[in-house]
Computed example of a mutant assay.
Amino acid sequence: MMTSKIIFFAAVSAATLAVILLAVVSPLPKKSQSTRSRPWLALSLYMQPPHLPNPRREATLHANSAFIFQHKLTEGPKNTSRVIGKARGFIVPIEHSALSAFNIIYLTLDTPEYSGSLSVEAKQVGHGTREELTVVGGTGSFAFARGLAVLSQAEGPSLADAAYHLTLRLRFPGAIPG
């Protein structure tokens, strides 16, 4: 009986000593220069419309349909600019209006500096040349990002061929929630 108490005490003491030694001897984590170390990040991208053989000039939304799109993301306004990702999205119209309570753009970027995705939500879509959207989250280099996305019509040879300029202003939390 006494031997089992001594063994138990020795095991508890050894475990406590191991925890203390690991805390004292373990190296401190290195500070990374990731996007989390910066409070704000500004990006400028271009969404290129797909080039179809017979492009439709106008898309008509019906109350029982959804509009789904996929565009290339490029560094510059020309469709020959370097492709750095994709923009995918959908619009679910409400009744007889193109306005929706659920409009999402999902951006995926893969560059030497950034690799990850961003979710952008449009709560109120108008028919103007400039739209302000809300960044509601991200993954990878953009984990926990929040901010503003401004979408505007870029200059192009024709309205059907024009790219959209997407300006992102992102902020990152100081600490990752646990």
Rank of each mutant, 00 (worst) to 15 (best):
K5M: 04
I6M: 12
F8P: 01
F9K: 12
V12R: 06
V12D: 00
V12H: 02
S13D: 06
S13E: 05
A14P: 01
A15S: 04
A15T: 08
A15R: 04
L17K: 04
A18C: 09
A18G: 03
L21N: 00
L21M: 05
L21C: 03
L22E: 09
L22W: 14
L22F: 12
V25H: 00
S26A: 12
P27G: 01
P27I: 04
L28E: 08
P29Q: 01
P29E: 05
K30P: 01
K30A: 07
K31S: 14
S32K: 08
S32D: 14
S32R: 06
T35M: 14
R38A: 09
P39F: 09
P39M: 08
L41D: 00
L41R: 07
L43P: 04
L43E: 05
S44M: 06
S44I: 05
S44N: 13
L45R: 05
L45S: 00
Y46W: 09
Y46R: 03
M47K: 11
M47R: 13
Q48G: 02
Q48W: 08
Q48H: 10
Q48D: 03
P49N: 05
P49G: 08
P49F: 04
P49S: 06
P49L: 00
P50D: 02
P50K: 04
P50M: 05
P50W: 01
P50G: 02
L52I: 12
P53V: 02
P53A: 05
N54C: 05
N54T: 06
N54A: 06
P55N: 11
R56D: 13
E58A: 08
A59D: 12
T60D: 08
T60W: 04
L61S: 07
H62V: 05
H62Y: 13
A63R: 14
A63D: 09
N64R: 14
S65T: 15
A66Y: 06
I68V: 15
H71R: 09
H71W: 11
K72P: 03
L73D: 00
T74S: 06
G76W: 11
P77C: 00
K78A: 07
K78H: 13
K78C: 03
K78I: 04
K78G: 03
N79G: 05
N79D: 15
S81A: 10
S81Q: 06
S81Y: 13
R82N: 08
V83M: 13
I84S: 02
K86I: 15
K86D: 07
A87Q: 10
A87V: 07
A87H: 01
F90E: 01
I91V: 11
I91G: 01
I91H: 00
V92M: 11
P93R: 10
I94S: 11
I94Q: 11
E95W: 07
S97A: 08
A98R: 09
S100C: 00
S100P: 03
A101K: 08
N103C: 07
I104C: 03
I105N: 12
Y106P: 03
Y106N: 10
L107N: 06
T108I: 13
T108Q: 15
T111E: 15
T111M: 13
P112N: 09
E113C: 02
E113F: 08
S115I: 08
G116I: 07
L118H: 13
S119N: 11
V120K: 13
A122P: 02
K123Q: 14
Q124A: 13
V125T: 14
V125R: 14
H127F: 15
G128F: 11
G128H: 11
E131V: 07
